[in-house]
Simulated assay, not measured.
Amino acid sequence: MSPAPSPLHITSAALTRGGRVLWSGLDLTVEPGELVAVLGPSGAGKTTLLRAILGLEQLSSGTIEAAGVVRRAGHPGGKGSRRIGYIPQQRPLPRETSLRGRDVVALGVDGHRFGLPLPRRGDRARIDALIDAVGAREFADRPVGLLSGGEQQRLRVGQALADDPPLLLCDEPLTSLDLANQQAVVELIDHHRRTRGAGVLLVTHDINPVLGSVDRILYLAGGRFTLGTPDEVLTSETLTGLYGAPVFVLRAGGRLVVVGAPDVAESAHHHDAHAHDAHAHGGHDA
C-alpha cells in the first residue's frame, strides 16, 4: 500500500498586509499524523496563515497545496474543501441560541447542502457517532447557548471532524478553557490525528497544554520564522536569533516560559505597536 500523501505543502510562501511582511520564504510540509504547533506574538500572522490555507487570504508569493487544493499568489482563494477540518477559538455562543448541541455537530455533516438540510440515511448515525467520539452525549440535546465553554468546544471539534478530514486546522482552540477542558480538547485532536493519520496545524499562544503531543513548532515573529522540534525551537539561543534581541526560555514547575521577547509589531516598526501576546513573551507562558 502506498503511503498517504502529505495533506499540506507550503512552498516559498509570503504574505504582506498593509505594507508589512507577516512572513516570507515559508516552506512547510505537514505529514500524515503530524502535529505542528504555530507560535508567536500577536500580529505575527498565525491566524492569517490558517486563513491563507483556507483560501480566505491571498498570498503575495508562493503556493499552498492543502488536501489537494492548490492556492497560488495573485489568484482568488476559490472554493473551500471539505477535506480540511477547522476548529476556531472558543467563543461563547449567546444564551438565547436555539440550536441544540447535536445541531452544531450536524452542520458539519449536512450544512454544506443548499437549502434546508434534510436528514439523509446514515446522517443520524454519523452525527451520533461524532457526538459519542467527542464525549458530548450527555448534553447533545440541550440548547447550545446554555452549555459551558468546554462543552461548546467539544461540539465544534465534532463538527470539524465530520468529514474525517486529512488536514485539521486549529486556531487557538484552547482559549478561555480551564485546564481540564484544555486537556480534553487536546486529547480529541490527538486521537484523530493518531488514529486517522490526519495532519494538524495548531495555532496556540501557550505551548504547554499541547507540548506532549507536538512533533514540530513553527515560530513566527517580526516577518521571520523558525521551524523545528520543540527542543530545537524553544531555546534561548534560537529565539534570541529570531527576534534579534535577548530572549530567555525557562522551565518552571514543568512548564516552559519565554521571557523578554519584544513585541513583533515593534520589531517590524509597525504602527500597531501595542499589539501583545501575553503568553508568547513578556515573562508569561510560551
Rank of each mutant, 00 (worst) to 15 (best):
E187L: 13
E232V: 13
V264G: 00
G85N: 11
G253Q: 08
R121F: 00
G68Y: 00
D141Y: 11
F139G: 08
S98D: 05
G45E: 07
I217W: 07
R196L: 08
V185S: 01
A14M: 06
D110T: 14
E237C: 07
D103R: 14
L201S: 02
A13W: 09
A268I: 05
S267H: 09
P262L: 03
E57G: 10
G149L: 01
A44T: 03
T235V: 04
V233M: 05
E187Q: 15
D272G: 11
V157I: 14
A278V: 04
V109M: 08
G77H: 00
L50P: 02
A162C: 07
F225P: 00
P262C: 11
E151M: 09
G222M: 06
V157D: 11
H75I: 05
I87R: 00
A180V: 12
I189S: 02
L99D: 05
P230N: 12
L242Y: 11
G282I: 07
G45M: 02
G282V: 12
G108D: 01
L8Q: 10
D132L: 02
I131Y: 03
A268M: 14
T175G: 07
I207Y: 13
P92T: 01
R216M: 08
A14Q: 07
H271M: 11
E57A: 15
L49H: 10
V257Q: 09
G43H: 06
S98F: 01
T238K: 04
S6A: 09
I87T: 00
P119D: 10
H191T: 15
H276R: 11
S81A: 11
P230V: 09
P209V: 15
P262Y: 15
V109E: 07
V109N: 13
D285E: 05
S24Q: 15
R124I: 11
E151W: 01
R196H: 10
D164A: 12
L201R: 10
H269A: 05
V259C: 01
P173L: 07
A129L: 03
D27E: 15
T11Q: 00
L118M: 10
A106D: 12
V264R: 04
L234A: 06
T238A: 14
L99K: 01
V70R: 06
G282S: 15
G149R: 01
P246I: 01
P166Y: 12
P166D: 03
V185F: 14
